[in-house]
Computed example of a mutant assay.
Amino acid sequence: MKIRKGGVEDLPAILTLLDSAVVWLNDKGITAQWGTDPFSTQEKSVRQVEETVRAGDPWIAEIDGVMAGTMTLTPVPGTYIAPADEPEVYVRLLATDARFHGHGVGAALLAHAVEETRRKGVSLLRVDCFAGSEGRLVAYYEGQGFTRTEEFTVGDWPGQVLEQRV
């Protein structure tokens, strides 16, 4: 697996990957996390992904030259979470292509996020995620070294903020 710096030129591929993740989630019966419609068909979602990628540092995980996962690191969270009281790196748009689930792509990207956070001289790495579905995603992040901080909701979408000191 290779992790490379991405850019706005990767937006179409990032949207395709996010669409794949929606299908994978839906196939598992998880429709509340990202809904049932592909990201690429929702104008608001496309705009949000584009704004996030432009405001941050997108990273692309590739396996045999194929995009297997993505994340974007930003200096602030999305608008629904208050920024920390100190410098932080925030993991956003972390997703694995459905074809590569179970290959450690997410873990590799999160390990890269830790490295990037250290490289920037920042000690706080945060992420938020869907807290529904029996908290499986929260447990995943805890398994990657993150600790729960605050819970939040956006409409009826339950979320959890987690952090890691690096």
Score class of each variant (00 low, 15 high):
residue 1 M to G: 13
residue 1 M to R: 07
residue 2 K to S: 10
residue 2 K to W: 05
residue 6 G to A: 09
residue 10 D to R: 06
residue 10 D to G: 06
residue 11 L to E: 04
residue 14 I to T: 01
residue 15 L to T: 01
residue 18 L to D: 00
residue 19 D to V: 02
residue 19 D to N: 13
residue 20 S to D: 11
residue 21 A to P: 01
residue 22 V to N: 02
residue 23 V to R: 15
residue 24 W to F: 14
residue 24 W to R: 10
residue 29 G to W: 15
residue 32 A to K: 15
residue 32 A to M: 12
residue 33 Q to K: 10
residue 35 G to E: 10
residue 37 D to I: 12
residue 39 F to N: 07
residue 40 S to F: 09
residue 42 Q to L: 13
residue 43 E to G: 07
residue 43 E to L: 12
residue 43 E to F: 11
residue 44 K to M: 06
residue 45 S to C: 09
residue 48 Q to P: 00
residue 49 V to Y: 06
residue 49 V to H: 05
residue 50 E to L: 07
residue 51 E to Y: 07
residue 53 V to F: 10
residue 56 G to R: 01
residue 56 G to E: 04
residue 58 P to T: 10
residue 58 P to D: 08
residue 58 P to C: 09
residue 60 I to R: 03
residue 63 I to S: 04
residue 67 M to F: 15
residue 70 T to C: 15
residue 74 T to W: 07
residue 75 P to A: 14
residue 75 P to N: 12
residue 75 P to V: 10
residue 76 V to E: 14
residue 77 P to V: 08
residue 79 T to L: 14
residue 81 I to D: 03
residue 82 A to G: 03
residue 83 P to Y: 04
residue 87 P to F: 05
residue 88 E to F: 00
residue 89 V to P: 00
residue 89 V to Y: 00
residue 90 Y to W: 14
residue 91 V to P: 00
residue 95 A to T: 05
residue 95 A to W: 02
residue 96 T to V: 12
residue 99 R to H: 09
residue 99 R to Q: 11
residue 100 F to V: 03
residue 101 H to N: 12
residue 102 G to N: 08
residue 103 H to F: 15
residue 104 G to I: 04
residue 109 L to S: 02
residue 112 H to M: 09
residue 113 A to D: 05
residue 115 E to F: 05
residue 115 E to V: 11
residue 117 T to V: 09
residue 118 R to P: 03
residue 120 K to W: 03
residue 125 L to A: 09
residue 130 F to L: 03
residue 131 A to G: 03
residue 135 G to C: 07
residue 135 G to R: 03
residue 135 G to L: 05
residue 141 Y to D: 01
residue 141 Y to C: 01
residue 143 G to H: 11
residue 144 Q to E: 13
residue 146 F to K: 02
residue 148 R to C: 08
residue 149 T to P: 00
residue 149 T to M: 13
residue 150 E to Y: 07
residue 150 E to V: 14
residue 154 V to N: 11
residue 155 G to F: 07
residue 157 W to C: 03
residue 157 W to E: 02
residue 157 W to T: 02
residue 158 P to D: 07
residue 158 P to Q: 10
residue 159 G to Y: 11
residue 160 Q to F: 00
residue 162 L to I: 06
residue 162 L to H: 02
residue 163 E to S: 14
residue 166 V to A: 07
